[in-house]
Amino acid sequence: MNRLDTEHQRLFSSDDDTLAAGLVRRMVLGIAGPADWPMLGAVWRGVQADLDLPAPAIAVNGVDAFELWFSLADPLPADTAASFLESLCTRYLPELAASRRRLSPSPEPGLSAEPARVPQLHADTGGWSAFVAPDLAAVFGDDPSLDIPPGEDAQADLLSRIKPITRAEFQIAMARLTPEPSPFLHEPAFAAVPQVPAASGSRNGPSTHYDDPRQFLFDVMNDASVAMELRIQAAKALLP
């Protein structure tokens, strides 16, 4: 396995058990028809400045699109990942026609497709896909491809600087993307939250009684048995 394969494995690869369980370790958001880096560049900057996420990898797909590749430290359900990508489009690309979006996984059944590995040659166009540095993305204009194969070491170097999104970072980002009002402002929403055991090592021990509201919200946010919508709202309530 060369350096490029190692970086791909670190960032984007999922084992068979993960895939069979409907989980993903990477999310891809692209703009095509035509490719448009200025629009996608706004998303690249926004996820860092507004959502405090690590910078995603930038790619030209060799055919028709610029893409952002997000790496996940822990696998997520595909529908949760799809909801995140849809929320990014709602926030940063509200005027972009749905037909120009390339989302993987997609919130629309039947439209999600595994993105082609980068880099590689596309025989139908004769162009190469490649990961590119942020300051070079605009150079491609509306032709998101390379005429020659990119160097594997250079591609590995670009990927080596990409950090996977941690579970906590993802939950906070989803909370910031979720529109108000928060259901935690209403009594029925509290009633919908199940009793959750305290996290291991918590001062509450095995009891489900909580004296500290922040500890309760923290445990809800990190409890995989709680509905994702409620976990997101718990994370939002914990934001500074």
Rank of each mutant, 00 (worst) to 15 (best):
D52G: 04
L53W: 08
A55H: 13
A55E: 02
P56A: 05
A57T: 05
I58H: 00
G62M: 04
D64P: 15
L68N: 14
L76D: 03
P77M: 08
A81S: 05
A81M: 05
A81T: 12
A81G: 13
A82V: 08
S83G: 06
E86Y: 13
E86L: 14
L88R: 07
T90L: 08
R91I: 13
L93C: 13
L93D: 15
P94T: 01
L96P: 15
A97F: 10
R101K: 15
R101L: 10
L103W: 12
L103R: 12
L103D: 03
S104V: 10
S104A: 11
S104L: 09
P105Q: 09
S106T: 05
S106W: 04
P107V: 13
P109A: 02
P109T: 01
L111T: 09
E114L: 11
P115D: 15
V118H: 08
V118N: 15
P119F: 02
Q120I: 12
G126N: 09
G126C: 07
G126S: 03
W128F: 11
F131I: 00
F131A: 03
V132F: 13
A133G: 07
P134A: 07
L136M: 13
D147L: 08
P149H: 10
G151T: 09
G151I: 14
E152P: 15
E152V: 10
A154V: 15
Q155A: 00
D157C: 02
S160G: 15
R161T: 10
I162H: 12
P164Q: 06
I165P: 01
R167V: 02
I172N: 04
A173W: 06
A173Y: 10
R176A: 04
L177Q: 04
T178E: 06
P181F: 01
P183I: 03
P183W: 06
L185A: 01
H186N: 03
P188K: 01
